[in-house]
Nucleic acid binder design. Structure first.
Lengths: 330, 330
DNA sequence: CTGTTAGCGCTTTCAA
DNA sequence: TTGAAAGCGCTAACAG
């Protein structure tokens, strides 16, 4: 293995100069710099990243902490992060927290121990982990969910507007008893989307009825149960707005099992695009989030933060897009 | 930050002894060991992983090099790897090669430079990258595709049997002009699955007709085009066996666009399970691969290899499962 | 602008 | 069984 000293000897300079040239630090005489670059090239020199890491007490790694790579919402987000990271010379560590605060916290500990440069995290409900990261002076960007108590850069999506558009669309299609299956009420995405739903009802002069709302868990089984419950409880909804992709799937399962027709008698719109929304019959109306863009944007914020740790924190909110398909059109 | 020396001083021993105790090396007097552990506990000592990495010229990182996290086939595989890795104290770097040998090779270079401990890779067609990894004496496990020339541990799936079962099922359902849309003929998964298709025809005493076979690219657009081509070319297939998930989606798109009914007049079976196979109408018959298990198994092989680099190479072949649903039942 | 020097914190010979 | 000491390869403070 060729080291920086080999290059130095070969170029007739000191190791420090080689380091300066290769890292673009300070100004180095062009003649020397040329000799160094030539020597490095000739010897096929590859800097030892581990040594650099130790010296700088920092790795060239990012961690992305999400609840589950199996959720298509996250895969394309991860993809967006990775594309930016790679270009900037960082590698991406993948951490699945499974919405489990303990698992999340154990990853945070690992991140701190590994001296990861930066973290992009979709936080679970507790904010301690985030605080821990910020205290450990890691660059942190939160995505998807808002965190109170702790200041960080953040990339969010306009959940309220998205939910409002979805609900307004159902109203406009003539549905009158629109139910909402949302997530846990301590998760901001769940409450924002519920708020959008309520706003749309109010704007249309429709009553808001608690009986038509179910707080579930953002999981498939939860959506399935909530849907069954809505059908069984006698509230007779004629449309469903489900606030994430997994619960939408669950709701559809119940409807299919019971032989209830979509969009008639029951219309469906789900939050989150699904790769197969166009393929199902009827095709599924969704509120699409720009997931790849969320990942890209978060990565860019992280990059900025690493370059300039003192800068003001930024929150970027991206827009959703309502994709009207057959499941809500009658 | 507390270092190993702090612990040593606090326990009244040398740093070397602390290291030995904490790594379980050699035999250390139980009294001293106890003092060391107590001191470490008390000071909240966390070993500096970066220093250890440098010293050992190796990280506690694994890389998973796949073509694209957006493909559900890979997400659950990655999940399987991560679950094992985390338990064993490794972290997982995610690398999307996009089936692009250059990108793959650039990741391999990065892996070598980062001194990653082990690599799990779904190799593109060229085997140079694998050779490079093996030469660089990284522990390597290949998955999904067979690699000639280079010896590694491997986890495969019984593609031939899976394809055969799918085709036999179509025959049994009374389809007589069964087409096959397969991948590039330099990719082993494509050729194995085609072989299975052919075997099934032969066993049933059916003719094998080149005109009913299309070599495509394992992508959605490729499957879409191949399907269109089959419909337009006058060969009049009455069933389709598509050899991966993305091409199955493409084929279904063409069928939907043209208003061709499934399973009548055309039956469809796809290789690879899809999370929504049950949700589409008609539900989609698939050859399911145990993707999570593939990931788990690969990770376990990697672990073994790291423990004992000299061991014989193993290839583990897992079985597929035919999930018969409505798209192939008439 | 360049070189010397001093570590980063750990593991692992080597000698006791 | 234990400790002293060396050094992994790099960067950055300092001196020239």
């Amino acid at each position: 293995m060729t080291t920086i000293h080999d290059v130095a000897r070969h170029a007739g300079v000191s190791a420090a100069t080689v380091s300066r040239v290769l890292n673009g630090h300070r100004t180095v005489d062009e003649t020397l710099a040329g000799r160094v670059r030539a020597a490095a090239e000739q010897l096929g020199y590859q800097p030892n990243i581990l040594a650099r890491n130790l010296r700088k007490s920092q790795t060239n790694l990012w961690a992305v902490i999400i609840s589950d790579v199996n959720n298509p919402f996250f895969t394309s987000l991860v993809r967006g992060v990775e594309d930016v990271a790679q270009q900037a010379g960082y590698s991406v560590l993948l951490c699945n927290s499974d919405e489990n605060p303990d698992k999340e916290s154990s990853y945070v500990t690992a991140v701190l121990a590994q001296q990861i440069a930066g973290v992009i995290i979709s936080p679970s409900t507790r904010s301690e982990s985030i605080a821990q990261l910020v205290d450990g002076s890691r660059a942190v960007v939160t995505i998807d969910r808002e965190v109170s108590d702790v200041d960080t850069d953040a990339v969010l999506v306009d959940n309220e507007r998205g939910a409002q558009a979805a609900t307004a669309h159902l109203i406009e299609q003539g549905y009158s008893r629109i139910a909402c299956i949302t997530g846990p009420n301590d998760v901001t995405t769940a409450t924002s989307r519920l708020r959008g739903y309520r706003d749309a009802l109010r704007e249309a002069g429709r009553p808001y009825d608690d009986d038509l709302v179910r707080f579930s868990d953002f999981r498939e089984t939860g959506g399935k149960q909530a849907m069954a419950d809505l059908l069984d409880s006698g509230v007779r909804p004629d449309a469903i707005f489900a606030t994430n992709n997994l619960m939408t799937v669950g709701a559809l399962e119940t409807l299919a099992e019971r032989g209830v027709g979509v969009p008639d008698p029951i219309g469906v719109v789900g939050f989150d695009e699904l790769p197969w929304a166009d393929l199902v019959r009827p095709s599924l109306s969704t509120v699409a989030q720009p997931t790849y863009e969320v990942g890209r944007t978060a990565a860019q914020l992280l990059l900025k933060r690493l370059e300039n740790p003192a800068e003001e924190y930024t929150t970027i909110t991206l827009s959703t897009k309502l994709n009207v398909r057959d499941s809500s059109r009658r």
